[in-house]
């Protein structure tokens, strides 16, 4: 209970950055905390409860976004009515960031959030996402390229893949 109370707020911020909605972020954190609860004795013994909780929350986000592996695929929005332009022109920088984050493929978004919000290393991010360090680098690079329009000091010229400083 103490762990859940102390970690919930931060995990919720991570989940929010990954899904763009506070209430849904709460759903993901609930999912993550339930998973932690189930495995608590083993985790506490190994001191890995926060890492596991983070992984569980990120997995909860990605599991449901992994569109090809779920027979429970949700329905999606009415794309005939959505207007990205309306959003991009009207919102402030933070909202623009969230909008651009939402446009990223889920694993690219996860890489950015884990690397620059959770401050995980490339190796830690790769371990959490179950992929190679090279994949983390390339996915992060692609994500940063997409995010460049929201970042005021970003270079105006196109950024080649792998041009990110690690």
């Amino acid at each position: 209970m103490e762990f859940a109370a102390s970690s919930r707020a931060h995990l919720r911020r991570t989940a929010y950055l990954m899904c763009g909605d506070w209430e849904r972020a709460s759903d993901f954190v609930q999912e993550g905390l339930i998973r932690v609860y189930v495995r608590w004795p083993r985790l506490e013994r190994n001191g890995g409860e926060l890492a596991y909780a983070r992984k569980a929350v990120v997995s909860a986000c990605l599991d449901h976004a992994r569109r090809r592996s779920s027979t429970e695929r949700p329905q999606e929005a009415d794309h005939t009515t959505a207007s990205g332009e309306d959003v991009a022109t009207a919102v402030a920088t933070r909202q623009a960031l969230m909008s651009t984050l939402a446009d990223l493929p889920p694993r690219q978004r996860a890489c950015v959030v884990l690397r620059y919000f959770e401050d995980l290393s490339v190796a830690e991010t790769a371990a959490l996402l179950g992929c190679t360090e090279g994949t983390v680098k390339s996915q992060t690079s692609r994500a940063l390229f997409s995010l460049r329009s929201v970042l005021s000091d970003s270079p105006t010229s196109e950024q080649a893949e792998g041009a990110v400083s690690w």
Partner: peptide
């Protein structure tokens, strides 16, 4: 038990969020 605070549609609250993610992707 698994608690869903809001939006318990047939596919579930987290699945709805997945819709948003899939849309964004």
């Amino acid at each position: 038990r698994r608690v869903r605070v809001r939006r318990v549609a047939i596919a579930g609250g987290t699945s709805l969020a997945a819709g948003a993610i899939a849309l964004g992707s």
